[in-house]
Design a protein around this nucleic acid. Structure first.
Lengths: 179, 179
DNA sequence: GTCTATAATGAGATAGAC
DNA sequence: GTCTATCTCATTATAGAC
């Protein structure tokens, strides 16, 4: 799975053949098919694992903080941290055109972690921390800038690590929706 | 090219074969290879055309408005309009993992139109309309929310057209960076 | 310039021993 | 559970008539 993640994100799912994974991982063709069924199964297994980790991390953030402000700030920090420490993970979760090779999965934006992020924003609106507006708009405003910076970083546009921009991004993000 | 755009965005570049384009367009295999060289040539031709249109539209916006505020507002309106009227165009420009099938093109974020958007934001900082900060951060803050909403719309998450959200998105976007 | 027919490649997937 | 060897087949790309 580590090989598959590296190859999928580095060269793309469709530019990665099973023989490529065999060479890179040292695991045999037969073994891969035995465990995952087919190539799509490898992608699905990766996707489920990553989404699971992400959701777990979000739940910890929710438990640790009580205000929407602190939760959103920690989420951006988490996203930046993953993007720096495990860029392949972040790239696979964010960018991978899952609908092209995981047709049964919905788009990533409607996966549990992203829904969870929107819910936390919605609670912030309910509690009066965030200006009254559509949940989706508020979530896009809070996290849109950070997600965009992550994309730029993964695409190699930013030389400096995301941590350097974190404070500015957070300030603009919160200013856009705060009461 | 219209067929290719529809098929590439609908099913993905790698799920679209030349025979698919032949059936859908009524143009023969030989003719396609005569004009475009290979499958990648079709994608490249599409990409160049769309980027050209986009850049032209941005130049008109720049000419028409003199303040960064008005320019950014018109850009978001333009992006929303294209996403609604020609979703395939927008999807191909934004989402298509160009590096997977157009390895020589840089990432979309460093293409002319996106650089142009960042320059307009930078001018806004220079003129004092936008708070002093890194260009890239400011551009991400201004356009990040809108781009995120476009992604949600293209992924079918939003039922209502983007126009309905335009005012709220613009308000949050500008509030995040305005002096 | 456009077409039909076809070649050549390499992919995904399977069989069956160990 | 893992391996090697192999099959099947769709895909990209070309050849050559019109």
């Amino acid at each position: 799975m580590a090989s598959a993640l590296r190859l999928f994100t580095g060269n793309g799912y469709f530019n990665t053949s099973i023989p490529d994974i065999v060479s890179d991982s040292g695991v045999s063709t037969g073994s891969i098919y035995h465990h995952f069924g087919d190539k799509e199964g490898v992608a699905k297994s990766l996707f489920d694992t990553l989404v699971g980790w992400m959701e777990e991390a979000l739940q910890q953030i929710e438990k640790k903080n009580s205000s929407a402000r602190d939760r959103c700030r920690d989420i951006i920090q988490l996203l930046f941290q993953i993007a720096e420490e495990e860029p392949d993970m972040m790239e696979f979760m964010l960018h991978a055109r899952h609908k092209e090779f995981l047709p049964q999965e919905g788009p990533i934006c409607s996966s549990r972690p992203f829904l969870h992020m929107r819910e936390m924003v919605a609670e912030g609106i309910a509690s009066g921390e965030i200006q009254p507006m559509d949940d989706t708009v508020a979530a896009a405003a809070v996290f849109g800038g950070a997600l965009r910076m992550i994309q730029l970083r993964l695409d190699g546009i930013l030389e400096k690590p995301l941590t350097e921009y974190q404070d500015d991004i957070w300030t603009t993000a919160w200013r856009s929706v705060a009461v």
